[in-house]
Structure formats: structure tokens, C-alpha cells
Design a binder for these strands. Structure first.
Lengths: 353, 353
DNA sequence: TAATCTTCTGTTATCGTTCACATACGTTTC
DNA sequence: GAAACGTATGTGAACGATAACAGAAGATTA
């Protein structure tokens, strides 16, 4: 038996059955305005009996708000995305908003599709955590121009009416490299350099700056770049990249004594390559990752890495967004950059001399 | 300068400016009905000029459908969820539907909240991929009763009006264990037994059945259970569980020669414990995982595991859902069980004698 | 030539809810 | 005892879009 084609119960269905007007039922359901205890009970009984559910479309249309915000994620498989989504949801839930997530993993076209489907549904605001790209960014500016509250997270973007929250990846990269330098390392490789802009580039720049600040030689052979794997590849897929890059680095006549990998997945791949070669971590080679994914503390040896304050990024972004959503007046621009933290575990050690 | 409080442009704003009625504009925007080329161009010009966007709420309200489906995910950090979401999205996108994702990671209460926010917004149907639980299931039945098309994926649930798609985890567990038995192993441990029902239990049951079918002794000391970590913990967190369980198994006077882990994360944890103990994989100990997460092929040694056809589950679920959404007539129940596939890599080998 | 069809546009009502206002009665206050 | 207030309900319009129908002009057919 199929029930799907039942017409749905409306406020006035309930009203009719309860012998009141729909306005009264509305008041009961939304718990505002005056309703006598007697009427309230009667209405609630009928609501239950008919299994009434309010129609959010009609409600949203009339109220001109939906109490819903959207989140657009690139790379849903990344633990970073997962934690970001969770932390955002915690805030939105607490403040009485629903959170709808859309994925856009490949192209600006998908970004636009996600933005459109969310604005179509009149979400009250949107948090954007995709990789930045021309087409998506253009549409973002348009949306903002149209008045949609927008906050960007962990992503390059600038608009005088959109807040941003990012981690200081440059300084994070600097810290990681400085840590290796402090341990006496001089031949420090970088795995996963990328030509495109964005957060990954910043990590690499931090590495370069640290080398320069310490007057170390910058050796291009020690920097493995982004060749076949494109930059949009999901995080975990870079493990293979790390494995292969490390193989190449180990084959160098003058192999590095330390490695800084663009992210933990890459680092894990590198660790596997090192183990396979018979070298020991950290006594023969030190390695540092980036992101502090949950697995980082469980690798063997436990991975030294740079933690970006993901949860804080999420909660801040959500708060910035809701501030815009709820404000009647113009809102001042927020562009928050959060500090990264070096987490020293067992994969790095003093250089043997 | 803040633009958010601009009132938004409606159909009739466009109509007024273009000197036609809103009906004509609607026809242009939706590309249906007759409109002269001249009028169409004029309207499109005004649409662009005013930056008009249609209001999906009003549209959905009138049309009684939103061309949107919802997906409720438990454990967003799990690669399985990511791939499921992607495959579902591929289908919905191609068929002209938007996909909104909600997360419900902890409780039945969160399930219900997710269901409510989706039905509130009048999605045309919902795909459910959370862990089953009493409260959530009850509400699901209610929703289905109310006529909301529902499909469940990878999850225990039965309702004569909701399709289900699952992988045959029992047979998967059986295959994994049989593989180890075929390699000559007799002392086969299981890591991550769980008392609660669900897919994880099935894997364990498959293990037990394979032992029985081969007349092997069932040794409870070789089955590490679900003690501190609760069953709702996200997938990756079980790596620690695997590490600790393996430590315990290695300390047994008569240690196992093979291990079947409830999932790949657990297996990776176990691998780390084994390596740490100085034993070699697979020559000293064979290990099999479950899920074939992307990282499984990158571990060292590459992990033998059981692959569930995640992508197929997603596309089937989406197709089943849209079939229900688009059908005017009653729909026959589908309860699809897909076969798992054993992926033999390098972490399993013939028992040394 | 009349009847029919095709093309184009407009009119009206409606989707389900809530806002703003109106009404009515009882209670307080000075 | 009249003005003011609190409580309880109802009325009508509106949110922005579209389905259904209607009308008018030109093209085609019988």
C-alpha cells in the first residue's frame, strides 16, 4: 500500500477539525501570542491526531527567512571538512538554525550549482569552504551583491561584505620548518609543492621563508612538486603522492635528513616509503606533516605535525555568519586569521652527527 | 556598505520593467509555454539587469515539489560516507535534483532533527544512511506513513514503503575469514566485535560462520570486543581500538597467526601494533580489513580487505528514491543486498609451517 | 468561407503560512 | 465609572510563484 499521494494536512485542516481559525492553530504551533489553555490542548490533540506538520516553504515565504544556513564543502572525504562541518553545525543548532550541506568537489561549475541550489531555497546565509576558483568566486561576489550573507573559511577570497576565517598556513609552514632546523637539520625536503595559489601554497612559502631566515641553501631538487596529481584531488589521495615523492627523494645522491610534507596524508605516504627503504624514523629521517588529522597520533611513529584550529574556524565562521544574518544594520568586515600550532610527536628528532 | 537589506527582486518587478505580466516572465525563466523571440529577449535583458533570482520557496509551494532530496549521514568523517554522498549526488544532479546533506552523528535525537529539518523544507524524498536506532527509526516510520519517500542505505530498517540497499556484510565477513583459512590459518582473531546489531555485527557473524563451517575451534580469547569505545564512534577513531586490541592479542601465550579486523581503520591500528612488536606482515601474521578505504591500498604492506560496493549502493539508493518521488502510482518494495568483494593484497600469506 | 489550429499574452485563483489589525470581554486603576 | 490594560480569538491581505483557463491574432485546413 502506498501512502505518498495523500494530500498533506494544513493548518486550516487542523483549524476546521478543532473548531478554530488557522491563526489560532498557528499561535499554538509556534507558541506565540495568546491562547487559552483549553484551546491549546484541544488544538494540540487535533495536531497529533491528524499528524500535522507545518509547511516550511509557506512559512519561509511569509516570514522572509528560513532559519537555515548552507555550507558548501570541497573534498568531503577530508577529516578537516568533517570537523569543520561538525563545529559549524554545533553553533547553528544551538542558535536554532538548520544546516544544509552541499558538496562541490571538482569545479567552479559545481560551486555555482551548490550556491544556486542554496539561494534558491532562500537559506539565510552561506558558509563557503571550497577551494577558490575563478568561476565560483565571481558568482560569490554576485550573490553577496544581491545581499546574501556569506562567510568563507580556509580559502582565499576577498569582498568587503563577506567575512573570512583562515588559518595562518604561512606561519604554520614556517614553524614546522624552523622546528626541523632547530633540531640541526640542513637538508630539508618539501613534499607536495603546488603552483596554484591557496592554502597549500602558503605552507610551501612558509617553508621557503624559514630556510631563508636561517640562511640555508634552497635546493630545488629537494622540493617535489605537483606533477600528475592535480590540486583538486581529495586529501587522502595525496598519500600516494607522498609515497612516490619520498621514493624519489631517497634515491637522491645526497638524500635529505628531514621532510616537511604538505599534509598528513602525504606524510603518511612518505613514512611508508621510508620504512620500506629500511631507514628509521626519526633517527635516520625526521618528518613533519600538516593538519593533525585524527590518524596522525596513531601512526608509528606518531607524527609531528601542524594543527590548524579547525573547530575554532568552524565556530567562528558560523558566528560571523549568524551575526550578519541577524543584524538589521550594516556589519563590519571580519577577516580572522588563526594561529597554527606545532604538535611535536615522535617523528622528528635531533640530527645525528 | 551593506547591501543585505535590499528587498529582493520578484517576478512582477521584472514584469513591470519589461512591460509584460509576471506570467510571461515565468514562461521565459522556466522555458516553457509560448513566448515570442522578441519578448523573450527583452525579458532576459531585464532579468539580467535587475539580477533577478527566482524564489524557490514560492515556486515549491505552488508546484508542490522542490526538486530536492535530502541525505542524512552518520559519521561524515568516514570515507564510506564521502563516497556514498558523491555517488548519490551524481545521480540526483543528472536527474535535475538538488541534494542537501544533513549530519547526525550521535543520537536518535539528531536523526529526528535532521529528518524534521528536511521534511520541513519539503524535500521530495530522503535517503537515510545513519546508524539505526530506536528513536530515529520510529520517526522514520511516521514520516513514511505521512507519505515521504524514503530509502535506507547500509542500515537495518524495514518498512513496507521504504526501499533498502545494503551490502552483504555477513558474506563479506565469511569470505575474509575463509580466505585466511584457505591460507592454512587456524588461530584467527577478530578485532572489534560489537554487541549491538547492525552491519558490524554481521561482519562478526560471518567470521563465526566461517570458523564453524570449517570446524575450527572458536576461541573467545581471540575475539576482542567493544569495551570502552562505543559503537557510535567515528570510523577513524577505531584505529586506536585496533592498536590496543592487537597489543593484547600479541601478549597471549598462544598468539593468533591471522587477524580479521572489523574495518580498515582498525586494521591499520593493528598493523602498527604488529610492526612495533617486531613481527612481520604477512610472514608472521596475516591481516584482513573491511571497507577498502582509499588508504588501504597505500598501507605497507597493502591491506587485504573486503570491498563493499559503495558507489553502487549510492546510485541504487538514489535511483530507488527518485523512482518513488516521480511515480504517481504505488511502487513495489525494493530490498537490495549487494555482494562484497574480497580484495587480496599483500597483508595476507600462506601460514608458515 | 468557415472552422480549426498554432502562437502569444493576460487574468484569476491558489499553494500554506503569518503579519497587522480588528473585535470583544474581563480586570484593574485613579 | 470611564479610561486603560491584558487576554483571547478572528479577519483579510500578503509572501512570490505557477496552473488553469481565456482571449486574440494570424496561419492552416476542409
Amino acid at each position: 500500500m502506498r501512502t505518498s499521494l495523500k494530500k498533506s494536512i494544513t493548518l486550516s485542516d487542523v483549524a476546521k477539525t478543532a473548531g478554530v481559525t488557522s491563526m489560532t492553530v498557528s499561535r499554538v504551533v509556534n507558541q506565540n501570542g495568546y491562547v487559552s489553555e483549553e484551546t491549546r490542548e484541544k488544538v494540540l490533540r487535533v495536531v497529533k491526531e491528524l499528524n500535522y506538520r507545518r509547511n516550511g516553504l509557506a512559512r519561509g515565504l511569509k516570514r522572509q527567512r528560513t532559519d537555515t544556513v548552507g555550507l558548501v564543502l570541497g573534498d568531503i572525504a577530508n577529516p578537516y571538512s568533517a570537523e569543520l562541518a561538525r563545529s559549524i553545525r554545533d553553533v547553528t543548532t544551538e542558535r536554532g538554525y538548520n544546516l544544509f550541506i552541499c558538496i562541490s568537489e571538482h569545479s567552479g561549475k559545481e560551486d555555482v550549482a551548490a550556491f544556486e541550489s542554496l539561494t534558491d531555497h532562500q537559506v539565510d546565509g552561506i558558509i563557503v569552504a571550497t577551494r577558490s576558483n575563478r568561476m565560483g568566486d565571481e558568482y560569490l561576489h554576485e550573490m553577496i551583491e544581491r545581499g546574501v550573507p556569506v562567510v568563507c573559511v580556509g580559502r582565499d577570497f576577498h569582498d568587503e561584505n563577506a567575512d573570512t576565517v583562515t588559518a595562518d598556513a604561512l606561519n604554520g609552514g614556517f614553524q614546522a620548518t624552523q622546528h626541523l632546523i632547530d633540531l640541526g637539520h640542513k637538508k630539508i625536503a618539501f613534499i607536495g609543492a603546488t603552483l596554484s595559489s591557496g592554502q597549500n601554497l602558503k605552507r610551501f612559502q612558509g617553508y621557503l621563508q624559514a630556510l631563508k631566515a636561517n640562511n640555508l641553501k634552497i635546493d630545488e631538487r629537494l622540493m617535489t612538486g605537483n606533477t600528475e596529481a592535480n590540486d583538486d584531488a581529495p586529501g587522502y589521495s595525496t598519500e600516494k603522492l607522498g609515497y612516490e615523492a619520498m621514493k624519489r627523494l631517497l634515491a637522491l645522491p645526497n638524500r635529505p635528513t628531514a621532510v616537511f610534507a604538505r599534509n598528513d596524508f602525504t606524510a603518511i605516504g612518505a613514512i611508508n616509503a621510508i620504512k620500506e627503504s629500511g631507514l628509521k624514523i626519526p633517527s635516520d629521517i625526521s618528518i613533519v606533516g600538516f593538519d593533525d588529522i585524527p590518524m596522525a597520533m596513531h601512526t608509528y611513529p606518531a607524527l609531528t605535525t601542524v594543527r590548524q584550529p579547525t573547530r575554532r574556524q568552524g565556530t567562528l565562521a558560523a558566528e560571523f555568519l549568524l551575526r550578519r544574518v541577524e543584524s538589521k544594520a550594516p556589519v563590519e568586515l571580519e577577516e580572522k586569521v588563526l594561529e597554527c600550532e606545532l604538535i611535536v610527536r615522535d617523528s622528528t628528532a635531533q640530527l645525528k652527527r
